[in-house]
Design a protein around this nucleic acid. Structure first.
Lengths: 320, 320
DNA sequence: GTCAGGAAAGGAAGCGGTTTCGTCATGGTG
DNA sequence: CACCATGACGAAACCGCTTCCTTTCCTGAC
């Protein structure tokens, strides 16, 4: 492990000078600069980013946490999805001395990096942030066509696993009730469900639910009218699961006796109401994202990547 | 940003003592230990991992790079896939002072972490490593059913993107020649191809090629016998692309005039022979993996995750 | 010839931790 | 009662690097 000290010795200068050369700061004569650079190359030296960060810890990074008003509202209610995500972000930021600013979309000034929270950003929005030249990390969101870093939950794997579990227990007629498929997370869960069904030679059946018009009533009505009662219902999140169960029980259909229901997220409601679900690690979503942003701000691992956090099935009492 | 010093002051002890409490090292009386722990909780203190790592840099980590003989052979030939991957690993290890040991599968002793290279590890193998309790990172490999960290290339996205590009240029009859679909990377490329085709209402057509029996000849023969010459051929790696082109030209079929060919990996051969391909960032694959392992060894971000590195289409001369 | 001023480089403190070593009490032994 | 382990803790060095403060040296103006 070659250190700055060795470089300094071999080049016959002080560590301060080497540091200046590395960071292009201060004044160094062309001659010594070249000499130092040569020695650095010879020794195959590269600075340890954390030592760097530690040493220069007087001037901290500022990261903007960008949220649309819709998402920002989550910060009010303790236990909401993005509340937890933000907690994760904050913890790491505090630990690392990163200054956090929550801003509305559209603010670009004076940030060393951006954390874009949630699915309310489209390609153009993201491009705008990328154009600042500062690191950008999408949180719980992902856009395939664009080379941007993202930290997401493995919705595909989670959905696949839970459907597989149901199938292994003998379930066959499993339907998927989902809302708008624009958000990446819902789309992933959708494909996880679909592929699990197909891989086991079962027919996927979908019902779309419009969260804005809140027509769960009519969706459930439609489902019961046109099809036999399914054996299990997989919803794209716990919120929908709650609504579905409500509608079901309004009609005298018992969960899980008549039909099983599984949600997604492991939200507070799922816990309170004992809904079987797939846990999304919201805190970790936040902390991973913040840590990734920090890494990028330090100039490390800058090749864009998507990181997917594993989920976990949480069995409660809405599945027989 | 609360530091160990503040904790020490507030608890009325020295930083050394706080450090002892944190790491459970040395001897601390139960009374002061509890006091320190209470203050730590009050202040919401957690140590900065890199400061920790820097300070304790006298006793370094040892990481085992586990390779089957098949993979290990790649280390001989400069420019091979795993050669580059290993370079990436080594660079980061050197920079971080991690001691690297290349070992055959089956060695578990005295390692602080494991890097499993390539697809030659099955579920049981991996479980065995996990059972040591030390961090394990899969490199260029991934197994869905098991909660293990992995660093892979985004084969799905790469394949999808390149097929989409072909389709946008007017190609319709695009076939996929792939070898054994056991390795995760090939499977991902396969699904990327498949989904791109389906999403554009085209019919996917596959030919399987057995790399061990090297029957590319008969595969190409089969393709030409049973089907019209396709407009484009997508192979699951550059190695296969080279073989396909060979067989094609043996038969007087010109690439790209009569048929276009695209590979995957951006290997040396692809560069030498001007094959249009999708670049896999091998160096980054290695450096990300090593960095991830280091993070895990430091006890940070320990929730298991899969990180996928973006690929890039490299246009050369086998596509019109 | 003297001196101010600036360019170039070095010394040392400090970032947040760990770890070695030394200093006290304390208690058990002869 | 003197002696010496031993337990509990603090002081200080150190990890690799940045940065502030000096020092040194050279140049040009008077």
């Amino acid at each position: 492990m070659v250190t700055i000290k060795e470089v300094a010795e071999k080049a016959g200068v002080s560590v301060a000078t080497v540091s200046r050369v590395i960071n292009n700061s201060g004044v160094v004569s062309e001659r010594t600069k070249l000499k130092v650079l040569r020695v650095m190359k010879e020794l195959g030296y590269n600075p340890r980013p954390w030592a760097k960060y530690l040493a220069s810890s007087r001037n901290r990074f500022t990261a903007y946490v960008v949220m649309t008003p819709r998402i920002r509202k989550f910060l009010d209610e303790r236990g909401g999805f993005y509340f937890d995500v933000f907690m994760g972000i904050e913890t790491v930021a505090k630990q690392s001395g990163v200054l956090l600013k929550i801003v509305d979309p559209g603010y670009f000034e004076k940030a060393d990096g951006f954390l874009l929270i949630g699915a309310d950003f489209d390609k153009d929005d993201i491009e705008a942030y990328k154009k600042t030249g500062k690191p950008v990390v999408l949180v719980d969101h992902y856009i395939p066509d664009i080379r941007v870093d993202a930290v997401v939950s493995d919705g595909y794997g989670g959905a696949y696993a839970v459907i597989k579990m149901l199938i292994n227990r003998g379930y066959k007629r499993i339907v998927h009730i989902h809302s708008n498929l624009k958000p990446y997370s819902f789309r992933e869960r959708y494909s996880g469900y679909t592929n699990a069904m197909i891989d086991h030679n079962l027919m996927p059946i979908y019902f779309e639910f419009d969260e804005f018009h809140d027509n769960m009533n009519s969706v459930v009505a439609l489902m019961l009218r046109n099809y036999d009662l399914p054996e299990a219902i997989f919803t794209s999140n716990d919120f929908s699961a709650v609504r579905v169960i409500e509608e079901l029980e309004n009609r005298g259909i018992k969960v899980p006796d008549d039909v099983s229901v599984v949600g997604f997220d492991d939200s507070i409601e799922a816990e309170e109401q004992g809904i079987t679900t797939v846990r999304v690690y919201k805190l970790e979503l936040g902390s991973f994202a913040m840590r990734r942003l920090l890494t990028l701000m330090m100039g490390q691992d800058i090749h864009p990547a998507k990181v997917s956090l594993f989920t976990k099935i949480v069995e409660r009492k809405t599945v027989k």
